[in-house]
Design a protein around this nucleic acid. Structure first.
Lengths: 220, 220
DNA sequence: CGGCGTCTCCCCCGTGCGGGGGAGCCCGGC
DNA sequence: GCCGGGCTCCCCCGCACGGGGGAGACGCCG
């Protein structure tokens, strides 16, 4: 009895690639595809796949929310393999905290992709497989320079501070952030100052750079 | 006689996806694959493909250099379709200047990918197809950034402006940039203003964000 | 209970930033 | 020759930013 997989990614090209790679295996079967997180729950109910290979970044409903929704609403939920482009995508960690069972880099080799799906299907957790560490090393930090990352680790931003940093990283001014969060500009200034202090940044631009360099936010 | 395509991308998953999408067409044939730019020239010599679908960012030899190498060393070179993740990747423009015939977003739909390959094969140039504009609009995060991207498409920064933007993206203040470039701070301010205007950015933070989002600078 | 951390808001104050002007110099192209 | 673009430098000016304080309200936890 083959392992059945549901592919969830907003890019058809990635779905086609995963399908080609996985269906080349006799013991793996692609049960279906979805282009966004919102379609996942009904599809899982109908297809009952063993594994969901899920992108984190998607329109409508991202991989984190889709993971939560699956675990919350589906009885005997499938194992969830998070698929991502960047190794230090903080969304990945959120997805793992939300209950995903492992993650996989899109640039992994076909054999590694197949291996990951099999492992996950068998109930193994696949948090930091050797292949990922190797890839991370090969691609030299690829989206997470160590110093910046260490800085962010030590920083221990509060929820609110992280929220503010994210908005800073979208180019919003203090006034705009205040409007978005429905608080006063003075409050935002407090949070911004805290972020700058914790990150060792001199101004918001340096803070945003640290956010990018550490993978706290990612381009694309 | 079918259109033959050589796939060049360092990610096997992307190659598999392109292969699956293209080989579903009766009039398109995948002649071969390469994982980096260095392998392109000999492969083209041997396989004589009509079209090379080439990633810009690759180890060893990137898409720009590979394009140059092809046009310089191969007689009757194939048409070159640049494949990219970001619409405003400055490398793409370099590749186009180097002689590539068009570019394609990885998140395009299969039908659009097929269409692009056919167009390129027929000798059409494919610089800003409607599909790309539509995708850019769809994925533009609402308003401000979209305008900035559209701006960046046309924004041809001068050498000096690019240099200044790069230093901005490293967190340097105007005074520090001035010291680094051995010019006056007023001069730096002029360049910064020009960059902001060309990028449609309100302040240096937004400019740096655009630099990251467009791939003008990369984390790590 | 009292402490602690978080979130909220307030004051003053200096300054780096960015807009809007203008101007001289050099080089390459028409 | 002249013109245009790029690089350089200068003026004034308003303001958002960020530092350095302080303070009240809430929830959590020992």
């Amino acid at each position: 009895m083959p392992v059945t997989v549901l592919l969830v990614d907003d890019e058809p090209l990635v779905r086609a690639g995963l399908r080609a790679v996985l269906e080349a295996q006799p013991d793996i079967e692609v049960a279906g595809e979805a282009a966004d997180g919102a379609a996942v729950v009904p599809l899982v109910r109908r297809l009952r796949p063993d594994v969901v290979a899920m992108d984190v970044r998607m329109p409508l409903l991202d991989g984190i929310e889709a993971t939560r929704a699956l675990l919350r609403t589906v009885s005997d939920p499938p194992r969830i393999l998070v698929v991502t482009t960047f190794e230090n995508d903080e969304y990945v960690y959120e997805a793992l905290r939300a209950g995903a069972d492992g993650f996989l880099l899109k640039r992994a080799r076909p054999a590694e992709i197949v291996h990951a799906v099999r492992l996950i299907a068998e109930g193994e957790s696949l948090l930091f497989p050797a292949s990922v560490r190797r890839l991370a090393a090969e691609y030299g930090d690829g989206g997470g320079n160590r110093a910046a990352r260490a800085e962010l680790e030590r920083a221990r931003l509060t929820d609110r501070e992280g929220e503010v940093l994210r908005l800073m990283a979208r180019g919003l001014s203090n006034a705009e952030i205040a409007a978005r969060l429905v608080v006063g500009t003075e409050t935002v200034k407090s949070h911004v100052s805290a972020v700058l202090a914790k990150l060792g940044a001199r101004d918001r631009t340096q803070a945003v750079i640290t956010a990018y360099e550490s993978g706290f936010v990612t381009p694309g």
